[in-house]
């Protein structure tokens, strides 16, 4: 099929960017969206134009590296699908497609479609862990965890840290991301000891990075490629409030 893609091109962090249109022939419906971009890049290289820079690594929907907004939707139109697993069969001949990077103050553009998401790392560094040194763990079966509880923790832990939730939110809020991590650890007995300090530290780090607040639009959940539930935002708020009320952050 034949398509036209409009792609955000930006030479560097401080350079102005703009949308550039490319016509592309012979797109195969079995191609993934990123393979379509590979294909486009090969044609650009042949013409002596610099290829479009975009992030991807595992290309199987788990590493969280790929990060494209397609026609205004982070990861594109398919539900619970990262852009690397989106296939061209969901587009039609003659379609015009608009491709942009994640847009958020806390995710500055580095080049074309590549953004800097180190703010998410820094939130995790603030408290997204259980402080247990290697070698000091008790036998794994010493602390029973009910199946429902473990499954619930796993639902939260499934977050791939791509940042689509931020890109989807009109406030550029990272609360689904932070909520997932806070909840994952707060749902497990191993995470109890530090749960107050963790909730406060991670929320404060999130605010310090310049992410916005949640106004309950649920755009994040709709865009999340792993279907992380907004219930975890409520869970995080509860953890945060509890920690504040008990008056101890560390």
């Amino acid at each position: 099929m034949r398509i036209t893609v409009h792609v955000w091109r930006q030479a560097g962090p401080q350079e102005p960017g703009k949308m550039v249109a490319y016509d592309l022939d012979n797109v195969n419906e079995h191609m993934s969206f990123l393979e379509m971009l590979d294909f486009l890049n090969e044609s650009l290289i042949a013409k002596g134009e610099e290829p479009i820079a975009f992030d991807s690594d595992c290309r199987e929907g788990i590493c969280g590296m790929c990060s494209l907004v397609i026609d205004g939707i982070p990861h594109g139109p398919e539900k619970e699908t990262t852009v690397c697993q989106l296939h061209m069969r969901h587009f039609h001949d003659g379609q015009e497609i608009f491709i942009e990077p994640w847009r958020a103050k806390s995710f500055p553009v580095l080049k074309d479609l590549i953004i800097d998401r180190s703010s998410l790392d820094r939130i995790q560094q603030a408290g997204g862990f259980i402080s247990v040194n290697t070698g000091s763990a008790p036998d794994a079966n010493n602390i029973p965890i009910g199946k429902e509880q473990a499954d619930r923790a796993m639902d939260a832990a499934a977050c791939i840290g791509c940042g689509a939730c931020v890109a989807a939110c009109k406030n550029a809020s990272a609360m689904l991301f932070v909520g997932a991590k806070v909840s994952h650890l707060a749902l497990l007995p191993q995470g109890q000891v530090e749960k107050k300090r963790r909730a406060i530290a991670m929320v404060e780090a999130m605010d310090a990075e310049g992410f916005g607040n949640c106004t309950n639009q649920y755009e994040c959940e709709a865009a999340c490629p792993k279907g992380i539930s907004v219930e975890f935002i409520a869970k995080m708020n509860r953890e945060y409030l509890g920690a504040q009320l008990s008056g101890r952050s560390s």
């Binding site: 290697t134 008790p138 036998d139 199946k147």
Partner: peptide
């Protein structure tokens, strides 16, 4: 030891209804 360590770090391994791994 790896299983013990990972569990202590919060890895949500699959569980039986009784709570064991």
């Amino acid at each position: 030891q790896i299983i013990d360590q990972a569990t202590a770090m919060g890895v949500p391994f699959a569980r039986e209804y009784g709570g064991t791994l």
